[in-house]
Design a protein around this nucleic acid. Structure first.
Lengths: 332, 332
DNA sequence: CTGTTAGCGCTTTCAA
DNA sequence: TTGAAAGCGCTAACAG
């Protein structure tokens, strides 16, 4: 239903100049006499002219479009990161085309095909686990891409993110340092996230005398956190601390603890992972690990754009997690 | 850095057919002999061919792209809705280009310009308050658009959403029905959202003898909810119920209540708005109003696509809010 | 059922 | 400093 819209030749006619000149002032390429320039701009204004992106893309094979694929946008940590990506791209006059994969490699592949077919010039993907075909496809076509939320310099594709393994291991050591030796680790579905797998492996890698770590897999939401706490209360082991590999799960633990009449941290220490906006507001305030999701989004976008504009290689980038000690873990 | 990629004429050469035939099988338009079709497909496969979207768009002026502009993606309610939009568009082979306006009309206008310049065929905007220039621009260019999250059949542009005014009024009446007559209404920044303004106005419209409603504006996040509760505890009025115009604020109230040693609902009834995923998990479970955000996203996308494909007008659509009575409001 | 060909609107040499 | 004209890759008449 789109109305027939002004084209470059209308502007040319209106201003009494050639389309080449109009193109030059639209793009700022080459010199144009100031007065000529004014005439063109006036005509553009008058005709409400906006260059046709398809024609431009066809002519230059530049679409100024970057695609991002994320498993879900409904977890705040992804929302934060994708917001930063969008805003950074926007700053550089790029647009974000977004697809959601539901943590499914096939859906992801389908999405990438579609986005490629839409003219995306580069891809920001989440995590390191992708179907071979996807990576092949991108490589065959020479399309730039980066894996976010993970850091692994060994990978052939550049990664910008965290060392999930190391951070989780450190978290366990942090708890043992507080005197906890029976630790429950609560995490989301392993099948849905390689980051979860890495974190769990990291937590599992700590080997200290007398340390018992047990794992509880549960849906990655508040209800899942509640369910996990209930399960571990009934387990034989008397845990003194819970490490939730996501703040969302920790929130569930808080509610389940309240229901069970358990006080945090007196009866049970709880530690989170992510440092979501509200974790400082919990009562008691949640001890957690800050992941710089926004910075990651900004960096991923910046590097992708730099690569597109200058050809600079995208280098792997490690972002540090940061321990935020608050009131939900006590020393025993 | 994108590699030179197969074009339609390469496929034509490879398969020994004409480009027109290749185009036909790519698009499924017109009949092609099955055997010919196979040959083309084989050639496509071999050359890793994907049609150039810019050329196609230039030729047909169809981009299969829909733009959505939302104030933020970091509130779960928007994330839910935009997820539904993406998935529905995806189903219809459309792509979503996303922009975030930070609840700022100027940013929104800038974003729309950029998205228009990217070839978006239609817009899904959030709320009913937009700069005149924005609406003008869209109308001048005859670009389809719909306002989501609101319903107002009077508006010249179609709306798909809720009657925020009516629902908020109903919520107040619900509380008075439970015997509450001193009600605090906690809400986010009026300047950032016309939905907030409508809800507040709705709550304010209830005029019952002996009813006292007071308003507390606060940042729309958990910390804001906490702050609001602290403020209203210190106010002169002894409120018996709080109506939070967003569940996020209610969550803050829960934490602040815990800190203040107040029990919900014995000392204070709390009611939310939105029915976020975790509101049933709170302790006590939150009484709130469910807004069908996903359905709204799905409907907005469906109608926009239908309009694009068949020219069907987009009609205003009212979605009902639904009271979910749980344990956080008690009868007095 | 298949091929030829004229654009789609813009950028970019090459000339003037 | 400006203009003319040749594509960019694809679709869609129109012929055959």
């Amino acid at each position: 239903m789109a109305k027939r819209v002004g084209r470059i030749r209308d502007v040319a006619r209106e201003s009494g100049l050639s389309i080449a000149t109009v193109s030059r002032v639209m793009n700022g390429t080459k010199f144009v006499a100031p007065e000529t320039r004014e005439r063109v701009l006036a005509a553009c204004q008058k005709l409400d002219y906006l260059p046709n992106p398809a024609a431009r893309a066809l002519s230059t094979s530049i679409t100024k479009t970057v695609a991002a694929v994320i498993p879900t946008i409904e977890h705040n940590i992804y929302a934060k990161y994708i917001t930063a990506v969008e805003q950074t791209l926007s700053l550089h006059k790029y647009s974000l085309v977004l697809a959601i994969s539901n943590a499914d490699e096939n859906e992801e592949l389908t999405a990438v095909r579609k986005l490629l077919g839409m003219g995306a010039e580069a891809f920001i993907l989440t995590g390191a686990a992708h179907s071979d075909e996807l990576v092949d496809l991108l490589n065959r076509r020479g399309v730039a891409h980066v894996f976010a939320s993970v850091w692994d310099p060994e990978l052939p594709s550049p990664t910008i993110g965290y060392d999930n393994f190391a951070i989780a291991a450190e978290a366990v050591r942090f708890l043992t340092g507080k005197g906890h030796h029976r630790i429950a680790v609560v995490h989301g579905a392993m099948s849905e996230s390689d980051r979860t797998r890495q974190r769990r492996a990291g937590a599992d890698s700590v080997d200290l005398p007398g340390l018992a770590v047990e794992f509880f897999e549960t849906p990655l939401n508040v209800a899942g956190g509640k369910a996990a706490l209930r399960r571990l209360i009934e387990s034989e082991t008397r845990f003194t601390a819970i490490l939730c590999l996501s703040d969302v799960l920790a929130l569930g633990c808080y509610f389940a603890a309240a229901e069970a009449g358990l006080t945090i941290p007196d009866d049970l220490s709880v530690m989170g992972f992510d440092n979501l906006d509200w974790s400082s507001e919990l009562y008691p305030a949640l001890t957690t690990i800050n992941l710089p999701a926004r910075r990651m989004g900004r960096l991923a976008a910046t590097h992708v754009v730099a690569h597109l504009e200058t050809g600079a290689a995208i280098e792997p980038l490690l972002l540090e997690g940061q321990f935020i000690e608050r009131d939900s873990v006590r020393e025993i």
